[in-house]
């Protein structure tokens, strides 16, 4: 589904990603963890072309990402941001129907009925007419997930989806994400929620200084990390 080969990414003189290679298969849930500044978010943003690699290749469903293929890639990927980035001037339902109507050209009524189903599935049917600024953080993030899903992506990318939330709201968002894993969605999740990674992920990518230091099953990674750096990291966060 996603194939990353020798991916490098630099911003001016700073090398953020350094020779990353990995493969993510269809239906796999991958948790990307690591210390802050390790390049996790940049890695994720390379998967839908929000960042264009300095060197190396990212292929999504066999299509290499380039400035020309961005549309093709982004149709297949949905993204959820740490700070939600809902459209504040649109109501919840309009946030969900915006891209289906304006990008896919879906009829308004159909888009709305799909949006209502999605709102139902994230438990926010009663908020359809509300503006984002009137929602709690957890509610905003659930709307953001529904908004991404409204485009029917094959892959969902999550960039620290619970890091900006108050602690009591983390669970409601993780619950929605867990539910999503049961649908067979391919998911790449940058997260600091070790419990979630351990319980839900099929694979852990541990990044440090822009490289994949360890790639392992969660059961193995959390009980017997191979590298010193992973051991050190887990020691600090657990």
């Amino acid at each position: 589904m996603i194939k990353v080969t020798k991916l490098d990414k630099s911003f001016k003189d700073t090398k953020v990603l350094n020779g990353i290679s990995t493969e993510i298969v269809k239906g796999e849930v991958v948790a990307v963890i690591g210390p802050s500044g390790s390049g996790k978010s940049t890695f994720l943003r390379c998967l839908n072309g929000l960042e264009i690699p300095t060197a190396g290749e990212v292929k999504v469903s066999e299509v290499p990402i380039s400035n020309k293929s961005l549309n093709e890639i982004r149709v297949k990927t949905g993204m959820v941001f740490q700070h939600f980035h809902l459209f504040p001037h649109l109501t919840v339902i309009d946030n969900l129907t915006f891209a289906p109507i304006h990008v896919k050209g879906i009829d308004k009524h159909e888009a709305e009925s799909q949006a209502l189903e999605l709102l139902e599935s994230v438990g926010l049917s009663d908020k359809k007419g509300a503006y984002p600024n009137h929602l709690s953080g957890g509610q905003k993030q659930r709307v953001a997930i529904a908004r991404a899903l409204a485009m029917k992506p094959e892959i969902m990318l999550f960039d620290e989806p619970t890091s900006a939330l108050d602690p009591e709201m983390v669970k409601e968002v993780l619950d929605v994400m867990k539910k999503l894993t049961h649908t067979g969605m391919t998911m790449v999740v940058v997260t600091h929620e070790m419990g979630f990674a351990r319980e839900v992920a099929d694979k852990i990518l541990f990044l440090d200084h822009g490289s994949i230091v360890e790639e392992a099953l969660p059961s193995k990674f959390f009980s017997k990390p191979e590298t010193l750096r992973a051991q050190d990291f887990l020691h600090k966060v657990l």
Partner: peptide, 19 residues
């Protein structure tokens, strides 16, 4: 982030600016 959210949803530039 508004630009990025629009890009991630594949919203064309003109539509993004206008709407």
């Amino acid at each position: 982030g508004q630009f990025e959210a629009a890009k991630a949803l594949n919203v064309p530039y003109r539509t993004m600016m206008r709407k």
